[in-house]
Design a protein around this nucleic acid. Structure first.
Lengths: 232, 232
DNA sequence: CGACGACTTGACGTGTTTCAAACGAGGTGG
DNA sequence: CCACCTCGTTTGAAACACGTCAAGTCGTCG
């Protein structure tokens, strides 16, 4: 199940086999992606396998090549909060401390590029662009986390689901139809709701003709303006 | 009301007049605090005055010398989420982008050291320790934001209030008695609750003998273990 | 003393959760 | 090819935690 095979660099086999929209590193010539291409190894993770655990020592940085990843935190009694979903191109595991404070799991079969922290940090000591980008990417994550706090603290179920759909549509660069890689439970734990409430809210949005649900994982955004109105 | 007077460096007058536990920069010889002492100016902000607004251009970095600061985000209809409270020693306004994504206001009369972003960033280009600390401090804020997301998404009112009290006690280095600088409304907007629920939950914790409330802004933590049990 | 703002308390309403059951798509085996 | 199982999802009914609305109290300041 947890087949995690390491290859020295992205092999054709993995990339071609990987699901939907593989991330093309060459197109986005930022310093960090360059560093990943240079010293990173591609690793394949099957659906629902752990990439790293909460409180595990943080030895690597990660970049999604294809697939999708969820970052989560657990309470002692099993309640789970998903802090972020990572899609192709995203870098994660960027904590500055010695241990991960979130766990990471593959939502779908994913190819992840992995690079030793120490190697990246050593590079950054000589390359200001890279150092700057480590900071920038961390600050970007912080902004997303802050937007997420507003959603969790102050929005109702309908607003949360609408925000989520718009956010996913933006990131997937999907004009109208959206294929969600994650389950209702994942969405619920991201939005701080139960799966029942997420499901009900989606059918409710369908009732308002804001969306259509051709299948449970597929969403058509029919009325973006209506969703936008709920966004804030 | 919004008396914001700039002085070339921390004047005796301001520091001595400032409320409780002024932050002594000399004791914590980190690169960023050093930079602030070197090129920062101390500014005084009265209670409830704006330090910067949401979406304002981010021209400065800030460090609390004395007092307390709230960071907030507003929804169009006025709902407010407080993302963080800053106490003496804390650095804020560390976004990497060109604009602030949170507003900042003084909760109590505060002295804030202010330094131009461009100056700090120029220093960081030559000083790896400083560059590293910019990243580290941003990553620390990210961790706090992530813990906050867990609280907002998955904890009930009692757990939220308990977490808040423990967190404040840790930061104020207060053994037992805690003087809160913020109002119930601030606490409510930090915890994603209403002031009524915060108030009720505090009296409920008092009923359980976990805390005492000698006055509304003063809390004695009588049974830390009981609070800790609610913390996760 | 009177007025104001911050906080507390009470009664009631409601959005979300909880518990439970039914549904539907995908896969396996007969 | 269809019966059957499984797992994710949807739907329903009831319970409950928190929000809302409305008084009432407390402390502070003029």
């Amino acid at each position: 199940m947890s087949v995690t095979e390491i290859v020295p660099n992205v092999s054709e086999r993995h990339v071609s086999r990987a699901a939907s929209v593989p991330f093309d590193a060459a197109k986005q010539a930022d310093a960090l992606t360059e560093a990943f291409t240079l010293i990173g190894a591609a690793v394949r993770f099957d659906r629902n396998t752990e990439i790293f655990g909460e409180a595990e020592p943080a030895e690597y940085f990660y970049q999604v090549v294809s697939g999708a990843v969820r970052m989560y935190k657990l309470l002692s009694d099993g309640r789970r909060q998903i802090g972020a979903f990572h899609l192709p191109g995203d870098v994660f595991g960027l904590e500055a401390g010695q241990t991960h404070r979130f766990g990471a799991e593959a939502i779908a079969t994913s190819v992840i590029r992995v690079a030793r922290r120490s190697a990246i940090i050593a590079l950054a000591a000589r390359d200001h662009d890279l150092a700057n980008e480590l900071w920038t990417r961390t600050a970007d994550r912080l902004q997303l986390a802050q937007d997420h706090m507003l959603l969790l603290g102050r929005k109702n179920a309908e607003e949360r689901v609408a925000s989520f759909l718009l956010q996913m549509a933006d990131r997937a660069a999907a004009e109208r139809t959206l294929d969600l890689p994650m389950s209702r439970q994942d969405i619920a734990d991201y939005l701080g709701l139960t799966i029942e409430t997420v499901s009900r809210t989606l059918t409710q949005l369908e009732g308002k003709a804001a969306i259509e649900l051709p299948s449970s994982r597929r969403v058509r955004l029919c009325n973006r303006a209506a969703l936008q109105r709920l966004n804030a």
